[in-house]
Amino acid sequence: TGEEYIAVGDFTAQQVGDLTFKKGEILLVIEKKPDGWWIAKDAKGNEGLVPRTYLEPYS
């Protein structure tokens, strides 16, 4: 389980392990790392690192 967040901007993977997403996408945050990069999963089940500055809590 995780917390749902909504993307407030588009993000394109910079390196292997990053997750590309579009503004408005709902992501499930699995782990919040202290460096500001969180592990998240998208609706298709893809998992990767995302920058927390692009996310806001979804309710």
Rank of each mutant, 00 (worst) to 15 (best):
E31C: 06
E3F: 09
D42N: 09
Q15T: 15
K32V: 07
P51V: 04
K32H: 06
K32E: 04
W37A: 06
R52L: 12
E31Q: 12
P51G: 07
Y58W: 13
A43N: 10
K33V: 07
P51H: 12
A40D: 00
G2Q: 12
D10P: 06
A40I: 04
P34M: 13
W37N: 07
G2M: 13
K32G: 02
V8S: 08
D10G: 07
P34A: 09
I30V: 14
V50F: 01
T53A: 09
G17L: 05
R52Q: 10
Y54H: 15
Q15A: 10
E3H: 10
E4W: 15
E56V: 13
D18W: 15
A40R: 00
A7H: 00
E25V: 06
D35Y: 06
D42E: 02
T12E: 12
L55W: 01
A7M: 03
Q14F: 07
L27Y: 02
G45F: 04
G45T: 02
G48D: 00
I26H: 07
D10R: 03
Q14D: 09
G36W: 04
T1C: 05
V16M: 08
L27A: 01
Y5T: 01
Q15N: 14
W38I: 02
K23F: 08
T1K: 15
I39Y: 10
A43W: 09
L55D: 00
G17P: 04
V8F: 04
D35Q: 05
E25S: 11
K32S: 04
D10K: 03
E3T: 13
Y54F: 11
K22Y: 10
V16L: 14
E56H: 09
I6Q: 08
P51I: 06
D35L: 06
E31A: 11
T53G: 14
V29M: 02
V50A: 09
G45M: 05
Y54I: 09
K44H: 13
G2F: 11
A43Y: 07
D18H: 15
K41A: 06
T12F: 13
E25M: 08
G2S: 10
V29K: 01
T53I: 13
G2I: 14
A43E: 12
Y54Q: 09
L49W: 08
K32Q: 07
G17D: 05
G9S: 14
N46T: 12
P57N: 07
I39A: 06
G48P: 00
A43G: 11
L28M: 12
L19G: 01
G2H: 14
Q15Y: 08
I30P: 01
R52A: 15
D42G: 03
W38F: 06
G17A: 06
E3W: 12
I6P: 01
I39E: 03
Y5F: 09
G24V: 01
T20D: 08
L28C: 06
A43F: 10
I30T: 10
S59N: 12
T20G: 12
E4R: 07
K22C: 06
G9W: 14
V29Y: 01
I30H: 04
T53H: 13
A40C: 05
L55C: 02
F21N: 01
E4A: 12
K41M: 10
G17K: 06
A43K: 14
D35N: 14
L49K: 15
S59Y: 11
Q15D: 15
E31F: 09
D18Q: 13
L28R: 11
K23W: 06
E25Q: 12
V50K: 00
T12M: 11
E31D: 13
Y54N: 07
P57I: 14
P51M: 08
F21H: 01
G2W: 08
K41I: 07
